[in-house]
Simulated assay, not measured.
Amino acid sequence: MTKRSIMLRALSIFMGLWIITQLAFSSAQLLAFKHGLNHAILEIRTRVALDAAHLDLGDPNTQQSLNEASVEAYLSTLNQKVAEEYGIALLEVLSVQYEPLSKGSLSGDLDLPLFGVSATPLEIRLHSGHADLVMAINVPSIFSHWQFNYFGFLFALGISAFYVKRNEAKEVRRQQRQSMLPSALLHIDLNTKQLVNVGTQQRFDMQNKPLCFFVALVQYCIDNPNAELLHHKDVPESLIKGANKAFARLIELGHTKRKRPDFNANLEKTLSEIRAVLDLVFAQNEKHKAIFYPPRAQGEGSRSKQHSYALHHVEAEKVEIIGL
């Protein structure tokens, strides 16, 4: 995973967690605000209903005028108590007055306009026998009390930072493990006359002639990556020299006292013996085997002679020859 993809995923985690926690916080805030505001308005309504008899509000039936100074003083005192007791900004009683009777008098819960952009005047009518007591209240919007969820922000930031650190550490460990892995896939050990799968450490014996030819073939193809080794042509001189050198080394190591074989003879049999051992060495890994596997001739007769047995994908770092 690249650093860019890690950062993009961390950003997605942060945004997702922050939005979820903010929505949960705001929803709880809305419910609490609505409950508190509804309770405060009901308390105000009850207080005003009890105090109305002692206020000089006038009488619409007798056309008695309203004592504005007295009412304003009462509203100022009432709003101060509301602010101290409930602590809800912008909640205030704007006016109180009597009006002629109305069929619909408000009772129970209020339908509060919580989602306006600013405070909204709300009219409440209280039935009082001979007239309606009408009270205008300024109701604040939830947005005037909206709060940023700092805990949710820090929580989302912490989780996303932990995700980045954890994945960066995993990537470092992966790279360390990768660097510790041997680059070679195959060891050709002349000391034991074996081919060794570096990954599994499995070893398989190989006869002298195919072993020496294979050593020379690998070296030749590394030095000549675009070479074509055709069945109907003689084996290149440099490849023969490499095979003879490997055979001389086997003699020095005490593996044989026989005379040097003709590496130009019975080529297909030699290649078949090499393939047979490679089938065992890389039995569970066709991809690695293909690097060292001399391609088989396809077709029959003269067409098969045009086939190259060169190893076009072999590289120096993929193979190590031990004891040469």
Results as ranks from 00 to 15, higher is better:
V196F: 09
Q176I: 08
E286W: 03
C221N: 15
P100A: 11
I19R: 01
N38Q: 15
G108R: 06
P261F: 07
N226D: 15
L185K: 14
G104K: 14
E315K: 15
A161M: 11
G301D: 08
H39N: 14
Y293C: 05
D189F: 08
G158K: 03
N138R: 13
V218T: 04
A246V: 04
I251K: 14
I44L: 08
G87S: 05
L122H: 06
A310S: 14
D189P: 05
F292T: 04
V82D: 05
E85G: 01
A131K: 13
E237T: 13
P210Y: 08
M7Y: 15
E237K: 12
F214G: 00
A10M: 04
F151D: 02
K81A: 15
L66G: 00
H39S: 15
I142H: 08
A136K: 13
A265T: 04
A283L: 05
I322D: 04
S238N: 08
F247V: 03
P294T: 04
E300G: 03
L11H: 00
V164A: 10
S12A: 15
L112R: 07
L90N: 12
I6D: 05
S179A: 14
T256H: 06
V93G: 02
S118R: 10
N79K: 05
H288R: 05
S102R: 12
Y309W: 14
S302V: 10
L229F: 09
L271Y: 09
K245A: 13
V134C: 08
S12V: 11
Y98M: 02
K103V: 11
G104H: 13
K305V: 00
L23F: 15
V48E: 02
S95K: 08
Q176K: 12
L8H: 05
K289R: 15
S304D: 02
M1K: 06
A32M: 10
V281H: 01
N244P: 00
N138Y: 03
K245I: 04
L23G: 10
E99W: 01
Q97W: 03
P210Q: 08
L211N: 05
L271Q: 07
N244M: 09
V134P: 01
S238F: 07
V218W: 02
D132Q: 12
L181C: 01
S183P: 00
A83T: 10
I88E: 00
K193D: 01
S179Y: 07
H54F: 13
